[in-house]
């Protein structure tokens, strides 16, 4: 009885309810127009892209066949001689060395610039804007391009790789550091100033203790990802394992290629594990 009563009340007020909750009660397809349009455009762009880049079934199948053959030849990974294995391990140590020095050097260089680009430390907006654009420009140039430039300056070898990594990461670090400084709590700074400290003291005792853990954890994170990039700069001749890898691919020594790749996987996951451990120790388990 009350059921039919409720129904009647609803039917009587139907128009009014429809008007009141227009956005909720409108037909479902209306909310879908936008997404469907976007998805259709994306698919059309994708197909046009495939066509423009010259994709064809024939090429994919032929290449896939050959890839399958190569994968078969790659197994098992085999460096052939002990001296070659030692050479690759040595190159891997060099790779980690490049990543370590590049990350540390970039962070040390970027540290003062981080303060320069932080709004709360540097009130002059011109300095702030100009330094931000400079960082963006350096970040926009890929590490391989920096490596090519540095090879022209200091010659082939891992040193060019270290300098390239410093240049490529300098922009990224300076930006991250300045963001960390900008989000620091203002109250410790005010406290130091109120107790009669100078501006420099405010930075040293008010801001630095807050940002140092953030900076350290970002450095560790970058060290890990830089180990990955350090493995490829050898392709253009800037030291590390990449040189041997590209050489072995060019001379179609597939078993050695797979040995080098396995070596890379092991070292990168070891660094990954180590940097995660250290990062948690630096910022504390909770803040993770």
């Amino acid at each position: 009885m009350s059921g039919t009563g409720l129904q009647n009340t609803f039917l009587a007020q139907r128009e009014e309810i429809n008007q009141r909750h227009a956005t909720i009660l409108r037909p479902v397809w209306r909310g879908l127009i936008g997404p469907v349009l976007v998805v259709t455009t994306m698919i059309i762009l994708f197909c046009l892209g495939l066509w423009e880049l010259g994709f064809s079934f024939e090429k994919i199948i032929n290449g896939g066949d050959q890839l399958w053959v190569i994968l078969g030849v790659m197994l098992p990974p085999n460096p052939e001689t002990w001296s070659r294995a030692l050479l690759y391990i040595n190159a891997m140590v060099e790779t980690v060395g490049i990543a370590f020095l590049g990350t540390l050097g970039a962070a040390i260089l970027a540290f003062p610039f981080g303060f320069l680009a932080a709004k709360n430390v540097m009130p002059n907006w011109l300095v702030h804007v100009v330094s931000r654009r400079l960082f963006d420009t350096m970040r926009g140039v890929d590490i391989l391009i920096w490596a090519l430039i540095w090879i022209n300056v200091v010659g082939l070898g891992p040193f060019a790789g270290v300098m390239a990594m410093m240049c490529a990461d300098f922009g990224a670090f300076a930006k991250l550091f300045s963001e960390a400084i900008e989000t620091a709590d203002r109250r410790p700074v005010e406290g130091v100033i109120a107790a009669g400290g100078s501006e420099l003291m405010a930075v040293r005792y008010g801001i630095l203790p807050q940002v140092l853990p953030v900076i350290l954890s970002q450095m560790l994170y970058y060290f890990e990802s830089n180990t990955r990039s350090a493995t490829i700069i050898g392709i253009v001749g800037a030291g590390g394992i990449g040189l041997h890898l590209s050489e072995m691919i060019r001379t179609v020594e597939w078993q050695q290629v797979s040995f080098i790749i396995v070596l890379m996987l092991i070292v990168v996951s070891a660094i990954d594990w180590l940097s995660t451990k250290l990062r948690l120790a630096v910022i504390g388990q909770r803040a993770h």
Binding site: L53, G63, I232, I249
Partner: peptide, 26 residues
């Protein structure tokens, strides 16, 4: 595996199997 092996290494291998051009890059 897919994210640890740098994309350029995949590209080097694919250039060998699929030939020069944008296909191995993609």
């Amino acid at each position: 595996f897919g994210r640890t092996v740098p994309d350029l290494v995949f590209a080097l291998i694919f250039v060998y199997t699929f030939g020069l051009g944008p296909i191995p890059g993609v």
